[in-house]
Each structure stands twice: as structure tokens, then as C-alpha cells.
């Protein structure tokens, strides 16, 4: 009898233990034993999230990899082939990361020049186009004469692109430099490259330019420019009234317009997943070679 009772109590205890185990497993509350796997998964998620973020960050550095959002001009096969060609070109020549407002030096092989090469230094005032048709415009003032040169980014005649000063400006396009005082777009051709320490975010130059008096090339007052300081000085009452009439404050709420202007994030992540690895490898190789170059031993001079 006593034996039977003991057995039943044992059974009940075992059942209770099992039940408790089961309930613990089923419960949403985290158990001490199960913490490490949960942490791991969250870490994995976090890593994936950060990786995704890093991949999406490259859209600022390499905007030409994204296709034109106009659906009439989309062709997935052409885009893919173009991306492959762009990577091929990037493996041949170092095309650095630069933004509108950066100062660049571009050397091209020029059959017209006497030395067969031509170097131009200037501030990047515009980047446009996508794929192999990507181009940028440099502006400089040489001998009091404003000059602009447009280059294709993937032009095979380009020998080198060097970033002399890596920075951004307050606006997306700097066409107002054409109407600004010449000192804002004057850069000497023997400028030394300024090296940013690794890992720093791209600095934004908050300089505000002064415009020359009218007539201007465009109606700058209607474009809501941040990089111009003295625009109000040159305006008449008539211009202010017309600016008010021409304002389109509803456009920032126009979701369809925004959608048509941009590539959706799903498409973007596909593209970046395709090219991100190779871009990273190219960057690493470039860094390695740059480091090697800095540590080369100086040549011993004979005699």
C-alpha cells in the first residue's frame, strides 16, 4: 500500500515536472537557459539590419548604379549589363566617392593637347545620368574666366579622377555659382589633396555664396536655395509676390510624385546585393594599395 502511494506520488511529481517544463517551453517569457539563443538571433537580426543599412548607404556614394526611375526607360537586362560594365571599368581605374561640392582633378588623354593629356581642376556642380551615361560637371575660374567642363564618369579616355577636397554643400546642384562672385568657384590647379581621417562622415561645407547683381541666368529666388546669402538684396517687391504665387508647398505631400522619382527599396536592395560585394572588394584593394604606396622605402640616391 505504502509502496503504491509512493509510486503514485512519484508519478504525479514527474507529471508535474513535465507539465512545468512544457509550460515553460510554451510560455513566451524568456527562460534563463534559453537566453543565449535568443540573444544570438537578435544579434543576427541586428547584424542583418545593419548590413542592410550599410548596403543602402552606398546609394549616396554610388548614385549612378541606380537606374532611371522613369518606367519607359527601364530595361532590367540592359541595366544588369551596364552594372557589370561599370564594375569592370571600376576595376581598371579608381573612380572615387565624391559629391556635388567636392573639388576634383580629372586627367584625360586628349588628342588635341600638345602633351596628349589634359588636367582640369574644379568644383563638382552637378552629377546626373545613370548607368554608363553618368556624368559630372566641373567648374573653375581661370584667369578671371569662368569655365565648365562636363565629363562622362565611365569615359575610357579618363586617366585618373582625384578628389582634392571631399565635402558636400548645402544644395543638390550648384548652378548658382555661375551667378556668384568668382572667388567662390576659383580653385588653383596645384591644390594639394586634403585627406580626411578614416571613418569620418562626409563634412558639409556651410558656406553661403554671394550673388552678383541681376540679371541672373535663372530665377534663383524661386528655388529655395540654402547656399545663397544675399538673394533678398537683389529682389524687388514684384519678385517676392511672384515667388509666393509660384510656391508649391503641397508637393512634399505628393506621395505619387515621390514614388515616381525614386527607385523603391525592394528594387534597390536587389541591385545593391548584386554590386555591393564587388564594390567593397575594390575599395579594400584600393586602400591596401594606398597604404603600400605610403610605406615605400625612399630610393637610395647614388653618388
Amino acid at each position: 500500500m505504502s509502496l503504491a502511494i509512493r509510486r503514485t506520488t512519484e508519478l504525479i511529481g514527474a507529471a508535474k515536472w513535465f507539465l512545468r517544463r512544457d509550460s515553460r517551453v510554451l510560455s513566451t517569457l524568456p527562460e534563463k537557459v534559453e537566453e543565449p539563443p535568443a540573444e544570438l538571433t537578435s544579434k543576427r537580426y541586428r547584424r542583418r539590419f545593419f548590413q542592410n543599412e550599410a548596403i543602402l548607404e552606398t546609394r549616396h556614394a554610388y548614385p549612378e548604379f541606380l537606374p532611371d526611375p522613369n518606367p519607359n526607360w527601364r530595361n532590367s537586362l540592359r541595366e544588369k549589363l551596364e552594372r557589370a560594365d561599370m564594375l569592370e571599368r571600376r576595376s581598371q581605374i579608381d573612380i572615387p566617392e565624391f559629391y556635388v561640392g567636392s573639388v576634383l582633378a580629372v586627367t584625360i588623354s586628349d588628342p588635341h593637347a600638345q602633351s596628349k593629356t589634359n588636367r582640369f581642376v574644379g568644383i563638382c556642380i552637378e552629377r546626373k545620368g545613370c548607368g554608363l551615361r553618368a556624368e559630372f560637371t566641373l567648374r573653375n575660374v581661370v584667369d578671371h574666366q569662368g569655365l565648365e567642363v562636363r565629363y562622362d564618369l565611365y569615359d575610357p579616355t579618363i586617366q585618373s579622377i582625384q578628389v582634392l577636397r571631399l565635402e558636400k554643400r548645402l544644395d543638390d546642384k550648384l548652378f548658382y555659382l555661375r551667378d556668384a562672385l568668382p572667388e567662390y568657384s576659383t580653385f588653383s590647379f596645384d591644390m594639394d589633396p586634403e585627406i580626411l581621417p578614416e571613418g569620418t562622415p562626409i563634412p558639409v561645407n556651410p558656406v553661403q555664396v554671394k550673388l552678383k547683381p541681376r540679371p541672373w541666368l535663372e530665377r534663383w529666388e524661386r528655388q529655395e536655395l540654402k547656399g545663397v546669402s544675399n538673394i533678398e538684396e537683389h529682389l524687388k517687391e514684384k519678385d517676392r509676390v511672384r515667388r509666393e504665387l509660384r510656391k508649391t508647398p503641397w508637393e512634399k505631400y505628393d506621395l505619387m510624385k515621390q514614388y515616381r522619382k525614386t527607385i523603391p527599396i525592394e528594387d534597390q536592395s536587389k541591385i545593391w546585393a548584386e554590386v555591393h560585394n564587388q564594390l567593397q572588394q575594390l575599395q579594400m584593394a584600393r586602400k591596401k594599395s594606398a597604404r603600400k604606396r605610403t610605406f615605400t622605402t625612399p630610393k637610395t640616391q647614388l653618388g
Binding site: E135, Q145, L147, E148, V149, R150, Y151, D152, D155, R178
Partner: peptide
């Protein structure tokens, strides 16, 4: 030197 938009790699002048 011309103000007009030029071909790629040909400079465009302000005057």
C-alpha cells in the same frame, strides 16, 4: 569660347 552647352570634355565658357 562659347556660352552654349558643349559636347563632353569641351569647356563651356561664361562668355
Amino acid at each position: 569660347g562659347l556660352k552654349q552647352t558643349q559636347k563632353v570634355k569641351v569647356p563651356k565658357f561664361d562668355s
